[in-house]
């Protein structure tokens, strides 16, 4: 007999295709699991960014993982509401991002100062200095911006706060 917890731990084995140090569960894209019986399942997933090319990969990975564990009827629905937010990243995931060299989002989306473009402090994931500067509001993937540390001079990715 499979339980939702079993499924969740199975899905926790799937890494994010673009940031492989965190899992898709930690990323917060799995919204709902409905177990119908031992071979049928329905899932709701939500995109991080509307155009994120990793979503198809995530869907394929989920399907493959579930097939390997005996599911023959798998229905995956994309849902948009409530919209994904960086607030859903677990604390553990934020730690992992930092160790990987990506500065995790520093503010909750409750803080609207980023909307008005006020400068905010982002901590360098390497030397932990707060003396960093924005290089580019857009980065290597839809979810990241590019910063540079003024102390150790390393450029680094910052996980945009949305």
């Amino acid at each position: 007999m499979k339980t939702k917890e079993n499924i969740l731990s199975l899905l926790s084995e799937i890494p994010d295709p673009e940031i492989p140090v965190i899992t898709i569960v930690e990323l917060g894209v799995i919204r709902e699991i409905t177990l119908i019986d031992d071979t049928s399942i329905e899932l709701k997933i939500t995109p991080t960014y509307s155009g994120c090319p990793a979503m198809q990969q995530i869907e394929d990975d989920v399907r493959k993982k579930l097939q390997e564990h005996g599911f023959s009827s798998i229905k995956i629905n994309m849902v948009f509401s409530p919209p994904w937010t960086t607030d859903w990243l677990t604390e553990e995931a934020k730690d992992k991002l930092q160790k990987y060299g990506i500065a995790p989002p520093e503010h909750t989306t409750e803080d609207k100062s980023w909307l008005s473009g006020k400068p905010k402090s982002v901590t360098c994931p390497r030397c932990k200095s707060k003396n960093t500067k924005l290089i580019s509001q857009f980065g290597s993937t839809a979810c990241k911006a590019l910063y540079q540390c003024q102390e150790c001079l390393e450029p680094f990715d910052y996980f945009k706060c949305i």
Binding site: Y49, S50, C52, S136, Q137, F138, A142
Partner: peptide
């Protein structure tokens, strides 16, 4: 320059995603 190249490409990607949905 490179940063603007990235910016417009990213904006295009986001709105292509909206169009797809």
């Amino acid at each position: 320059f490179l940063e603007e190249d990235l910016a417009l490409t990213n904006i295009a990607l986001d709105i292509t995603g909206v169009a797809k949905s």
